[in-house]
Design a protein around this nucleic acid. Structure first.
Lengths: 343, 343
DNA sequence: TCCCTGTGTGAGATCGATCCCAGAAACGAA
DNA sequence: TTCGTTTCTGGGATCGATCTCACACAGGGA
């Protein structure tokens, strides 16, 4: 492996001059510049990343810590970040925290030790206090995307759960649905809480409150969608629509509805959230709220790149819009239902 | 940030001794060892990754280049690798090549420049000759997973496309299907070629050859599944089963079949490959061949870790088994069809 | 007593780049 | 001519760890 010294000898100059050419700063005569460039290509010289990093304490790496790299949702998000990073000539080093605070903490510290230039956190859990402290001391700019509030974050990308859920709920209400059930992903998640607030807002427009609908709490998993729907069906209460906390829950709900002979959307309308890969492959195709996942990841990267370029963004928050995607799983409630309601 | 010198001063020893304690090699008296450990925790000392890497030319990083990180398939694979790497205390630095040879080449060189200890390649394209050369010179151990042959790879993880496709085809044949169509992902992919050979083998057992079935070639995309099926339906030829090159193609095929009023599996049986996230969410749930994607990723990491530990594996190849997953999209051909065939 | 082996410790070179600074050369302006 | 600038170049310290080597000392055998 050729070093800067090899290049300098071959070009008959000092290492300093080579460094100036490589970094493209300072004064270098055109004549020597050409000789150096020639030597560089001839030797196939590529600067040693470690040496450079040691001296400058920068690595050209952007670090990312993500709840779970295997999940299609986060994979897409990270994919968006990757695109933006590559375009800016940065590497993206992503570590998965497996939704465990301990693993997430270690991952953050690891990345910091790798002298990464900036950090993007795709987490749901809040960050441990001691890690927060190390993060603060390091001065490394942090951008968070989704999830909980993070005091050290210089910028945050939020997905507009509120408006998305409100639109979805409005859609059901406008069609005439009143007996509605919501399968929430659980109050520990900010996403769930914001979606509930959106639901509440839509209900308010129709003179209703959260207590006028049935809410079940669980996890963002298909299993809960199934079990929650069975509970609903078993309770004897009648409902004409289910608003699932996300598309996984919706998939489970659909399964349970089918198993109990309820047709979707004729008997029960079903609406999801996320617009996952499988949403449009369900039968009926799922009406849902699309989150611009990849774009959010890209946006996070761009914000971080701005911070690295020295722009002063203090506690910037960007909310990316969601979009209601109409497919086949929602219809008007059956006339008899509507009559029952208005009676 | 505390350095090794800070620790040595606080503990009243030399840097060498601290280094010995941190690396846990060489002779150190118990007394000094304790003092040093105390100083380390008090100062919150963590060794500088760059300095260490510069000196030792190792980084504790395992590099990965993957066709496309956003795809659920590769995300799961990388996820498996992550788990294994973390367990071994290694970081995994993954870069996406976006299925472009140029980008993939740059990604490999980048990782090499980061002094990664080993490389795992999840690629479909063959590697460019000049990159192959750099790779060889670097001496960094390489493990490939899926995709094309790679002469520098010290180990390779292959997915058993042959057996998987043969089993799937056997399944159709055993049920009585004879008029079968195959929607292949295209001969440029090794996966497709191997699956075709498996299909051929199964046909051979029934005294048939590839020319006895209809084969359409396209890309591993839903779009092709739809278009290919429309072509088949438009050709007037009758068929009782479609073997799709993967689950995405199957999803497209299903859509086209439904649109043309063909029932699955009553009129046409459909079988896929991969067992993607959406396979079991299709209606009918898709019978398909499961690839142990995560396990394959994990296996690749473990092989690489063995190589790093100094074990001599020259051109090891491990084939991971596939498994036929029976769901609802395959049935016996209709009796009239069978009679037509035997007539 | 002398030598040898096994412990224990620190000095100092080294990895490869960056970057400050001194100084030379060239060129104008006074 | 004599100063200043501006342009151009190289020397050498520096980043923080690793690792070889020299040396000191203890204990045991000849």
């Amino acid at each position: 492996m050729a070093t800067i010294t090899d290049v300098s000898k071959r070009a008959g100059v000092s290492r300093s001059t080579v460094s100036r050419v490589v970094a493209d700063n300072g004064y270098v005569s055109e004549e020597k510049r050409q000789a150096i460039l020639k030597a560089i290509t001839e030797l196939g010289y590529r600067p040693n990343t470690m040496a450079r990093g040691l001296r400058s304490n920068r690595s050209n790496i952007i670090g990312g810590v993500v709840v779970n790299v295997s999940s299609p949702f986060y994979a897409q998000m990270v994919g968006g970040t990757q695109v933006a990073c590559r375009a800016a000539g940065k590497s993206l080093l992503v570590t998965s925290g497996h939704a465990e605070i301990e693993a997430e903490s270690r991952a953050i510290i690891e990345l910091l030790d790798r002298a990464c230039d900036g950090l993007i956190l795709y987490l749901e859990n809040p960050i441990r206090a001691d890690v927060l402290d190390i993060l603060r001391k390091s001065g490394v700019p942090v951008v968070t995307i989704g999830g909980d509030d993070c005091p050290v974050a210089r910028a945050h990308i939020a997905i507009d759960n509120f408006t998305g859920a409100r639109e979805a709920m409005r859609h059901l209400l406008a069609l005439g649905h009143r007996r509605i059930a919501h399968l929430s992903g659980g109050l520990i998640y900010r996403d769930s809480r914001e979606r509930l607030r959106g639901i509440e807002a839509a209900l308010g427009e129709y003179g209703m409150t959260l207590s006028d609908i049935r809410v079940e709490y669980g996890e963002f998993e298909e299993r809960f969608g199934f079990a929650g729907t069975e509970t609903l069906l078993g309770s004897g209460e009648d409902f004409t629509a289910i608003f699932a906390g996300d598309d996984d829950i919706a998939a489970g709900a659909l399964l349970a509805l089918k198993r109990h002979g309820r047709r979707v959307p004729e008997d029960v309308s079903l609406i999801g959230f996320d617009d996952n890969f499988h949403a449009r492959h369900l039968t009926p195709a799922l009406t849902t709220v699309r989150q611009p996942v990849g774009e959010a990841g890209q946006l996070a990267a761009n914000l971080l790149l701005q911070l690295l370029a020295g722009e002063k963004l203090e506690h910037t928050e960007i909310t990316v819009p969601t979009q209601l995607v109409l497919r086949e799983s929602v219809a008007q409630p059956r006339l008899t239902e509507v009559m029952k309601e208005t009676a």
